[in-house]
Design a protein around this nucleic acid. Structure first.
Lengths: 120, 120
DNA sequence: CAGCGATAGTACCCAATGGGAACTATAGGC
DNA sequence: GCCTATAGTTCCCATTGGGTACTATCGCTG
């Protein structure tokens, strides 16, 4: 396909379906991604700790979310060869930077929740 | 159920599964919601115009997205009784405010897209 | 030495959602 | 009488989301 070849010539915009920005927005504009990255702002954490903080997340979905973030270079996954297993997740520099807009979003929601008609 | 009654006593956090913040985050942390609200920042627009700006969106999904935003008080939907039909979508004050964190997220993605390994 | 517990998942299954193509109603213009 | 334009809706299917149950491993306990 010719689409993958000269993407760099295109203006980068999340509004263009073929732009990689679209995929990144899809990754970050996601409930569990936003929560997982926010939790990792406090420092490296184990799978079980993340699962406890992200109330309501199932282990499968948490694994999917973390793997996707890892694949895109937002989190690191370190496996310690111990028994029982220990795996620590942490933010990469890119992940730390991505946390800022996501933190804005989370705090905006919490500060403005009263204004939403559905929540009254 | 007792959960709806004294929600206001709970600390508001997107990390609590039962908090209404969680639903709002789910609404806003969504690709199409973020794009639709961003498009409406330029002023009221018709369905067809939004469909053209949000490249790749199907009419069904766009309708779903806009209805959901309308139900939560983020956008207004005005129907003009004309033929062919004309429907204009616009931001409510709450929707305008919600645009700020979403705009940060969109621009952060566009400005940092080169740093993502998957896009190289 | 046979269970038991702890951790980080995976396997399996089902429901919800995402998403596309085709269809609808209406009135003006040709 | 037919074509066009608009804002959807309907139907269908593939993908994803999501929950529950299960697994592997080793130290510890009885």
């Amino acid at each position: 396909m010719t689409t993958t070849a000269h993407v760099c010539d295109d203006p980068k915009s999340v509004y263009l379906a073929a732009c990689p920005c679209r995929d990144m927005l899809d990754l970050l504009a996601n409930k569990w991604s936003a929560l997982a990255l926010g939790a990792l702002e406090d420092g490296p954490q184990r799978f079980g700790a993340l699962r406890a903080r992200l109330q309501g997340v199932s282990p499968k979905v948490l694994t999917q979310t973390l793997r996707r973030l890892e694949d895109h270079g937002l989190v690191d996954r370190e496996i310690y060869p111990e028994v029982p297993p220990r795996v620590e997740y942490s933010l990469t520099p890119l992940g730390e930077d991505a946390c800022r807009p996501l933190a804005h979003l989370r705090t905006w929601v919490e500060e403005n929740i009263e204004r939403f008609p559905a929540s009254r």
